[in-house]
Design a protein around this nucleic acid. Structure first.
Length: 513
RNA sequence: CGCGGGGUGGAGCAGUCAGGUAGCUCGCAAGGCUCAUAACCUUGAGGUCGUCCGUUCAAAUCGGACCCCCGCAACCA
């Protein structure tokens, strides 16, 4: 059994989850379910990032202690993953002891190794924002965030020797074309590394200014910079320093799903941190695009201002979890930016899910009831010619696009089969066969129509698991799809005859506008 | 000349590496069918493939120049 370790980023809990968070975890869940289908031993990790000054401030605004605040906000994420049917194997919080121990030990080890050292930080500091800025950022001595004056400060801090490993990282990236995906991001990182000299990373914050963080084991006046803390979750959750067998089994991670905004941390800081620890880097960091939100209310578009953020929970309530999952992955080629609008969502759900898939399932089951009293008829011998091409080609196309994380294309590939099935009904005219009493021919046709529904459900299962399970159940199969074996399940003709079908309500009611 | 990505019918994309009638999904229009969620199927309209120049029998595809859009440019999760 092959292991497959994939992760999402740890989400910063100073605000509520938005559509972008949902996107990353849904993509991860699709990937995880796909690998489980293939029989891999999957470890799918998500969690929350809970330290830093922004958290402290947000907690103060609500009159809560930072710990009470993060306990509450972290739950918002847990609830969302349940709502979206995102099934992870672990949920790590950076405030947990299992994580803190790892961070402290890493810093201590690196300090002893001299990859972490003391120095003096010089730069611009905005007091009200509690933020550092570089000279270029703080042009005219103004904070780019709040536009107030910044002051020049000097203070002792701890630094991590990024610079020492720059050449190693360049050669690692050049030798591993799959390390950063998609290609645009690969080029972006590589050209950046070649064209710029890395500065060492300041990984400490003096406690006098910020106390909500993981304390340095050997210097209680300092806490850890949040990114240095957060990235280490990928090894602390995998059992680093605590469960040797688990860690050796899981590490290196196979896949880090991230948004393109945190590429640098994952493609530069993180592999270098691991290198310094003498651990292998993750096999792949995949940076996807963003969702730009425009809301359609009636005929006019609302501008995207702060109060107009689309909540994933609201969308799920309105459309259902599978519609939302499907939309996010079908609408936009994975990796590129997309635009979210209710109009696009409704159109997508109506045309692909209600009209094509939902109606296909409904009309097919209806014919089984009408012509065969709700029993799957006897199988014919040969696969009908119209299915042959798409059924023969689908496994290879699907496996390739799934492995390339080209979800948009995978769905496109599956829909070829959906369209063939719909088309075959028009061409065979089962209602005519029934009238003409061509029973053998009708049985044969209906059997393969049902079989195509079953096959579609397996391919589609990682994307819309709940619906696919429903289709299986409606066909009279009670097998749980989350335990299915892909290679076995996609075998054409394995649907037993005689099953009692259970037609339900349409899977996706058309949304009237 | 900082680095990178991109400009293809109304929208979103494929095709560019290996030049040879411009393809897919949605939307739109007409027709067909009735098992079905006014769903499904067929056909059609719609493109000087960012601009200009060059190579070639032939360029979305190769070469050059230019215009425009979007990312990245470091203590910010």
């Amino acid at each position: 059994m092959k292991k497959f370790y994939l992760s999402t980023p740890l989400y910063y809990v100073n605000s509520s989850p938005h559509i972008g968070h949902a996107y990353t975890n849904i993509a991860g869940d699709v990937q995880a379910r796909f690998h489980r289908l293939l029989g891999d031993e999957v470890f799918f990790l998500t969690g929350t990032d809970e330290h830093g000054q922004k958290i402290k401030r947000a907690a103060e605004e609500q009159n809560l202690s930072p710990q009470d605040f993060v306990d509450k906000t972290s739950d918002n994420f847990k609830i969302l993953w349940q709502t979206l049917n995102v099934r992870t194997d672990d949920f790590i919080r950076t405030t947990e002891p299992r994580h803190k121990k790892v961070v402290q030990k890493v810093i201590k080890d690196l300090y002893e190794k001299k990859d972490v050292y003391e120095s003096v930080y010089e730069g611009f500091y905005c007091v009200p924002c509690e933020s550092f800025w570089t000279e270029t950022q703080a042009a005219d001595n103004k904070c780019p965030d709040c536009k107030r004056d910044v002051e020049f400060i000097k203070e002792k801090n701890y630094f991590f020797k990024l610079s020492k490993y720059q050449d190693w990282l360049i050669s690692h990236i050049e030798k591993n074309k799959d390390f950063i995906k998609p290609t645009e991001r690969y080029n972006e990182v590589l050209s950046f590394l070649k064209g710029n000299k890395l500065n060492d990373l300041c990984i400490s914050r003096p406690k006098e200014r910020l106390e909500w963080g993981i304390e340095f084991a050997f210097d209680p006046d300092y806490v850890t910079y949040v990114w240095f803390d957060a990235l280490l979750n990928y090894i602390s959750a995998a059992g680093c320093f605590s469960d040797k067998a688990k860690f050796e089994r899981l590490w290196p991670a196979d896949f880090h799903f991230i948004g393109k905004d945190i590429l640098r941390q994952h493609a530069i800081y993180w592999p270098i941190m691991l290198k310094a620890l003498e651990l292998p880097p993750p096999k792949c960091v995949f940076a996807h695009g963003w969702w730009l939100v425009e809301k359609d209310s009636g005929s006019e578009k609302m501008s995207k201002s702060k109060g107009n953020v689309v909540s994933p929970l609201d969308i799920v309530e309105e459309f259902g979890k599978d519609c939302f999952r499907f939309f996010l992955l079908r609408e936009v080629p994975f990796g590129l930016d997309g635009k979210f609008s209710y109009k696009a969502m409704i159109q997508r759900v109506n045309s692909d899910l209600a009209n094509d898939l939902g109606n296909l399932v409904f009309r097919s089951l209806n014919m089984v009831e009408k012509y065969f009293m709700g029993r799957i008829p006897e199988a014919g011998k040969e696969m009908p010619a119209e299915y042959k091409k798409v059924i023969d080609e689908l496994p290879e196309k699907y496996l390739k696009s799934m492995k390339d994380i080209n979800f948009y294309l995978s769905l496109e590939n599956i829909w070829e089969l959906v369209r063939i099935a719909n088309k075959s009904v028009e061409e065979k005219k089962p209602w005519s066969l029934a009238k003409e009493k061509k029973i053998k021919e009708l049985e044969n046709f209906i059997y393969f129509l049902m079989e195509s529904l079953r096959i579609i459900s397996i391919y589609l299962y990682p994307f819309i698991p709940e619906t696919c399970q429903k289709i299986y159940n409606q066909l009279g199969l009670d097998k749980p799809l989350d335990k299915a074996d892909f290679q076995k399940e996609i075998e054409w003709g394995s649907l037993p005859s005689g099953l009692a079908t259970k037609k339900g309500e349409p899977l996706f009611p058309r949304i009237e506008t």
